[in-house]
Every structure is written in C-alpha cells, then in structure tokens.
Write a protein that binds this DNA or RNA. Structure first.
Lengths: 154, 154
DNA sequence: TAATCTACGACTAAATCAATCGTATTTCAT
DNA sequence: ATGAAATACGATTGATTTAGTCGTAGATTA
C-alpha cells in the first residue's frame, strides 16, 4: 500500500514548480536541495516528467525546469500512476491494469478492496496540483456519499 | 499501493475457514487447493496466523487448521497490517508506524495522503471477517461523512 | 506402526527500489 | 570564442523485498 520514493520526490518537486510558476526555470540542483532529494536520482524523475509533458527544460546557464502545464491540469492520480504504475491495491480491482483472478467468482473480500480503490482513485484523480497547493478541499465526503448512493455497482 | 500475495493468500484462506467454521479442521493441502495457493508457501502463512491467534492447528490424521477466534473478532485491517506491515501510503501519515519527514512542515500533499489513509484504515478496521463474509455493508459513506464533518483534524 | 498431518529453519531466484556514475550535449554570459 | 553551467541518458550497482522451495523433525491417530 506504499508510495514509492520516486512518486514522493516527483510530487515534492512539482509543488515547488507550482509555487514558482511563471517565474523562470529552476535548476535541478536547487530542486534537489529544497526538497531533500538526491540530485542524480532526481535527473531521471525530471526526464520522465518531461516526457509526460508536465515540465519543460532549458539547458545551459540560467537553465532548469519549469512547469509545462497549468497546475489545474495535472492530478496526483496521474503522478502516482506514472511512477508507481497502479493505484489499486490488487490487480482484480484495477481499472488501468486489470488482471483476471480465477478466484474472482468466489472471492469474499474483493468488494472491500474495490471500495478502497474507488475512494482513493476518485480522491487522487480530483486532486489537481492547483487545488492541493491552495489547500482547497478536494473531495468532501458529502459529495462522495451522494455519488455513491447514486450507485456504481461493482 | 499494492497488497502482497501473502496478504491476499491469508485472506483467501481465512474466508474458507470462516465458511467451514465449527465443522472441524481443514488440512493445508485442501486450503491450498481450494484457494489456489502454493502449499509450501501457505505453511509459513498459517504459522504466522497461528502465532497471532487467528487459527489453531492439530497434527496427525484428521488434523489441519480451524479458526480460533470468532469471525466477528478478526478484521481485514489486522490481516493487512500483519502481512504488509503498514496500511498508510507513506510513513508520515501512518499511525502504527509513523516516520518523521523533514519536509512535513512545508509538504503540500500530506493532507491528501492522510485523507486516503484515514478512509482505507477506517474501512479495513471495520471490515470484520463475519461482515465481509456475509457481504454486509461495512461502512456507508453517509456515516463516514458525518464522522468527518465532526472533524478529525490532521 | 505407518500414514498423515503440522513445525520450522535454511535457502534461493527474481524483481524492485533507490540510487550512483560517466559522459555527451546544449546553451549562454562574458 | 570559450568555458562554466545546465540538461540527457544509458549502464551499473547494492540492498531489500517478494515469493516462493526444500529438507526434515515431531506430533497424532486410524
């Protein structure tokens, strides 16, 4: 059930870039220092984020990284899926990477894992960097309760 | 965010034992076959569950494993914590295994991870084997919403 | 007394994680 | 021009975790 260091580091850095949005590039050295992330490790993470189009880079003096998308258009769910591969606790309740399980027909606890998966996925997919940065409530339980009682089956 | 095979296997077997509760021991061989779990691997899992007092064993012919506690007194949360160690997505929001993070004061996304952790922990800690076996609703979102608006801080 | 169980430590193969290193390439201030 | 400062990126590594297997000892009972 754990988040990898990569995801943790990526999120830390993204929020630093959100904070600095529109005020020029920040070099990896600085991103690493400010977020307590190993610099050489961060290089790979930044590359991956650039490939995803979340950040952009410029080399040379005065170079560094900037956010390439609006903070409201990147979600924590995307970041976690990028670096951890999957959000669901087990393959048989994953939407993005469903894996058939031959016990599925008789499994008693799949419902519960699906419940957990659904809550977390909704939460993370609504958590845009912009909202989280501002500390705005991402998902009130009231809203979630309404949606749920509207029914989403299994 | 993933459940280990050990936890998955342990849960499968526990529900088989719940189903058979009060009708004598089932040998590992049978538990393994019915739940599609490697038998030699399951031995270790059963030992660990015996140490926790969830199951009891008898050797010899007609031997095997039985549930040692009422199904209403074992929760999925306990099982997951036993085999996966922790329920929280990251150390800084774990109750059972809290780890200090020096970014905590400035971290923007801790709230969200805490929200996820709280929902999942509540869900799993309420999910007794008895209720899950019966397919009874473990945690209505309405109830959760009320509790939340009552306030639980960070 | 032999078949059938559990008990339990030793071992291992493979995957994943969390990096580090070397080096190439691009850019820009001077 | 040129050198300092930055990104680009593949190769490698060490540690840990995962997911088992194996051998054998010991208990029970038909």
């Amino acid at each position: 059930m754990r988040l990898s260091k990569k995801t943790d580091y990526a999120l830390r850095v993204l929020f630093t870039l959100v904070e600095h949005h529109g005020r020029g590039p920040i070099p990896i050295r600085e991103l690493a220092r400010r977020n307590d992330v190993p610099k050489r490790f961060l290089e790979h993470i930044m590359l991956e984020m650039k490939a995803r189009g979340w950040v952009d880079s410029s080399p040379g003096k005065q170079g560094g990284y900037v956010l390439a998308k609006e903070p409201a258009r990147i979600t924590m769910g995307e970041v976690i899926r990028q670096f951890d591969g999957v959000l669901a606790p087990i393959g048989c309740v994953s939407v993005a990477h469903y894996e058939r399980c031959n016990q599925e027909a008789v499994c008693r606890f799949r419902r519960i894992l699906l419940d957990a998966r659904n809550y977390v996925a909704r939460l993370m997919d609504r958590a845009t960097l912009a909202m989280v940065f501002l500390g705005a409530p991402v998902q009130t339980r009231e809203v979630f309760a309404q949606e749920f009682s509207a029914g989403d089956g299994i």
